[in-house]
Each structure stands twice: as structure tokens, then as C-alpha cells.
């Protein structure tokens, strides 16, 4: 690994390109999350290695790459969900608003209430639509009008008009796309600063996918969004920045390229990125 200069915030553009360790700093953006030298293990298997990147505020950052390149592992390290799997381990730093979320004494519960997550398969609670959204508010001790907060979140997730007459209905009776928008409403109800989305459309049809993509653009005015996707068109359509991961010979995922989405897709600086987005890898 080549040592890298760590620019202070706010970050300026010029970044030396190095073959072994791509430094990845979108210029003139205010970072919310800074990942520094992140490694994550499942038992003895290292799933991602030496990842350094910054996530800019109120932008959509896409993480793309072939299967097994550690995309999901990386995103789950950003709100300490990775450690829920027994036998896992994380090294390196993830600075959130300047503070390392892996520092001793940091409560993962607090981290997760500030960095929300939407999962690959819609996973509403087997309860009413209302209770799905209200749960996060209740456990975080929300003092205010629950109904109003639920409505606000459902409107923000572009679901209100479809469910306003059946808030008491079991959420499992909604369609897949509706369930996923409910999960987004549930995540933003607790007012996180960042919303992580792990392949949020992979279980959805194209129309539901487009709705979620529109919604993401809408939400990016207020929230920072990180999305893992195996769909390169999706990354190109919705994201402002794109990180490309690849699987190394030891099967660990590493960062190949990170930059503004348009540059990554039209003028990739790394031949592996080019090979991937033109369909020759993965």
C-alpha cells in the first residue's frame, strides 16, 4: 500500500492517482462519513480490505461492483450492522461527523439511530402500516404527535396517498414496492442523517424500482444516501458519486475507483472500472 495524504475537510479536488490505493475524495463537498483504511472480516475471511472513501453530505453515493466484491459488507460497516453476525471483526476508522463510530465507548444503538438502513428484501414488521413507522419513533422516545410524524414520513416516502385509508392494515399485505417504500418511511421517521440502502430494488419490478429511484432523488435534498447496487444503470441514473469495488485474488473486496458518477462512467481512470462497466468483468 502506498501512503496517502489525508486532506482535511472540506476536501479539495487534486488527488494523486495511485495504482494500489485509489484515493477517493470528491472535491468541494462536505463529508458526512469518512472511511479510513477499513477492513472487515467474517471469522478468518477478510471480505473488504483497506477501503478509504468519503461520503458527501446530501448526495447519493453508489457502491457498485461484481458479486462478492464486499459491497454489502462495506455498507453494513457504516452503521455497525456488520458486527451483528457472530465472529465478525472490523479494523480501521469510520468517521461520522468527525467521530469514529468504532471508537471505544461509542454505542452502536446511537450510531444506528443516526444512520438508518433499508435492506435488500423488504422487511416490514408483521404489524400494521402505522405501527411499522411509529416503532422507531416510540423506541427513541419521540415526544410529539405520533400520527403527524407517521404521516410526514409516509408522505416523504411517497406512500401516503396509497395507504392513508388503511393505516391499520397489516403491512405484509402491501405489494413489494409499497413494502420497500414503507421500509424507507420507517427508516426516515427517526430522522437519521444518513440512509444506507443495500440493493433496495433487487427484489422489485422495474416500475417499483423507478418509483424508489425517484424517491431517492427526492430524499437526497434532505438526507445523505449510500446505495449498494449490482445494477450499473441504476448507479448511473441516481447517484452523484460512485465507488467501484472489485474482488482481489484473496477474495477480499477493495476499492478500485471513486469519483463523480459521470466521470466514473464516461471516463474511468482505472482499466478495471472500464472493464466492469463495459461488461467485461462481473
Amino acid at each position: 500500500m502506498v501512503s496517502q495524504e489525508r486532506p482535511s475537510t472540506p476536501v479539495q479536488v487534486p488527488v494523486p492517482r495511485v495504482e494500489a490505493g485509489p484515493v477517493c475524495t470528491p472535491g468541494e463537498e462536505e463529508p458526512v462519513i469518512e472511511v479510513r483504511g477499513l477492513n472487515a472480516w467474517y471469522g478468518g475471511f477478510r471480505a473488504v480490505k483497506d477501503i478509504t472513501l468519503t461520503v458527501p453530505r446530501r448526495r447519493i453515493t453508489a457502491i457498485i461492483g461484481p458479486s462478492g466484491s464486499g459491497k454489502s459488507t462495506l455498507i453494513r460497516c457504516l452503521n455497525r450492522m456488520h458486527e451483528l453476525v457472530p465472529g465478525t471483526r472490523v479494523e480501521g476508522e469510520v468517521l461520522f461527523e468527525g467521530q469514529d463510530i468504532y471508537a471505544p465507548g461509542v454505542d452502536p444503538v446511537e450510531v444506528r439511530s443516526r444512520i438508518g438502513m433499508v435492506f435488500q428484501k423488504p422487511n416490514p414488521f408483521p404489524k400494521s402500516i402505522f405501527e411499522n413507522v411509529a416503532f422507531g419513533l416510540r423506541i427513541n422516545g419521540y415526544r410529539g404527535d405520533l400520527r403527524e410524524a407517521v404521516e410526514r414520513s409516509l408522505r416523504a416516502a411517497a406512500l401516503w396517498d396509497e395507504v392513508k385509508d388503511k393505516l391499520g392494515q397489516n403491512a405484509l399485505r402491501l405489494s413489494g414496492g409499497q413494502q420497500q417504500r414503507l421500509c424507507i418511511a420507517r427508516a426516515i421517521a427517526v430522522e437519521p442523517e444518513v440512509v444506507l440502502m443495500d440493493e433496495p430494488c433487487s427484489a422489485l419490478d422495474p416500475i417499483a424500482t423507478l418509483k424508489i429511484e425517484d424517491l431517492m432523488r427526492e430524499l437526497s435534498q434532505r438526507y445523505t444516501i449510500v446505495i449498494v447496487t449490482h445494477n450499473m444503470q441504476q448507479a448511473a441514473r441516481v447517484s452523484d458519486y460512485t465507488a467501484v469495488l472489485m474482488m482481489d485474488d484473496d477474495r477480499a473486496g477493495y476499492l478500485v475507483e471513486f469519483g463523480p458518477t459521470r466521470e466514473v462512467f464516461t471516463n474511468p481512470r482505472d482499466h478495471r472500472t472500464e472493464a466492469y462497466i463495459t461488461g467485461r468483468i462481473g
Binding site: N79, M81, L84, V109, E110, R112, S113, R114, G116, M117, F119, K121, N123, P124, F125, P126, K127, F135, G136, I139, N140, C183, R186, A187, V190
Partner: peptide, 27 residues
């Protein structure tokens, strides 16, 4: 109860006990 339910609850900032009491046990 599928693990995805526990993940959903924990990702909202619920503690383990809140997850068990409010989501896992009723289900």
C-alpha cells in the same frame, strides 16, 4: 421469526431487548 425482522429493528436504533420485546416475541 426471520433474522431480517431483527435487523430491521436494530437498524432503527432499537436495543436488543426492545427488538426482542416489541418485534420478536409478538411474532
Amino acid at each position: 421469526v426471520p433474522p431480517s425482522i431483527r435487523e430491521a429493528s436494530l437498524a432503527l436504533g432499537a436495543t436488543r431487548w426492545q427488538t426482542v420485546w416489541h418485534q420478536v416475541l409478538p411474532a
